[in-house]
Design a protein around this nucleic acid. Sequence first.
DNA 1: ATTCATGCAAACGGTTTGCACGCAT
DNA 2: ATGCGTGCAAACCGTTTGCATGAAT
Lengths: 144, 144
Amino acid sequence: MENDKDYRAILKQGGLKYTKHRALILSVLGESSQPVGAGEIFLRLQTAGAGTNLSTVYRTLDTLASKGLVIKTNIASDTKALFELNTMEHKHHLICIGCKKMFSVDGCPIEEYEEQIGKREGFDVTGHKLEIYGFCKECKAERK
Amino acid sequence: MENDKDYRAILKQGGLKYTKHRALILSVLGESSQPVGAGEIFLRLQTAGAGTNLSTVYRTLDTLASKGLVIKTNIASDTKALFELNTMEHKHHLICIGCKKMFSVDGCPIEEYEEQIGKREGFDVTGHKLEIYGFCKECKAERK
DNA sequence: ATTCATGCAAACGGTTTGCACGCAT
DNA sequence: ATGCGTGCAAACCGTTTGCATGAAT
């Protein structure tokens, strides 16, 4: 809401028309520290009083993703898709097996490796995804 | 089929009864160089003349995975689950954006990193997943 | 004999689509 | 004015579940 200007700019940058829903969805993603599912986005829009529709949310996320403004992920062994703002900062995630929360970590240990492996296998590498699994502080404590 | 003994042993090792379907599903996974979806496994069993049922395939894969005999994965931005034999060798995958094929690569560049990051974030790390995206030789050629 | 795996059919959750209407440029 | 975004309802696909039957130890 407050940063409406920002979302206008982001949309323009992606060559997309400004619409209320797109801005709202971007703001939901922007306010979240973790990737969010379509359903949850829909819920937050509802409770925020924005009359909207699940399929609109899906369609919007699709177009945002196709312009590279958001990133579509999913954590292993879960079938539903998650979305996050594409901040352009290269990040990886720590994923708690217990509570399913995701924590972002900056930095990347495998840039050179990526290059090597591409050469070795004849691959034109465009990116990668690294997820680290384990138990977060809280779940670690509960577990013993 | 030919290595039926092996699958018997694998099942025993997981503390599971031997059944025809389990052995067949293990053999399908064993013959595949890439992770396979439940639907495709079902199809292969059908064409192999084994009367079976999709839900049996799902249930079997679940129990195999729960015993650590197979691994359940999924590639980013696709929602359907894939399964592969757990060979115990630590592997990662090269995934072609063009044809969606996955190629296994041995070795792991981030074992030490994993440890560091766990300490830094108070995480009890149990594993990780690394996927490298790009275009394989063939798709690279087609693309230009 | 008992426990556990299987087939079938039906339910389910997340996601996609066709169509008519409404909004942004 | 035109094209694109939206709402609604229905379809869709992968996956899960309840129940009765069949097989493995």
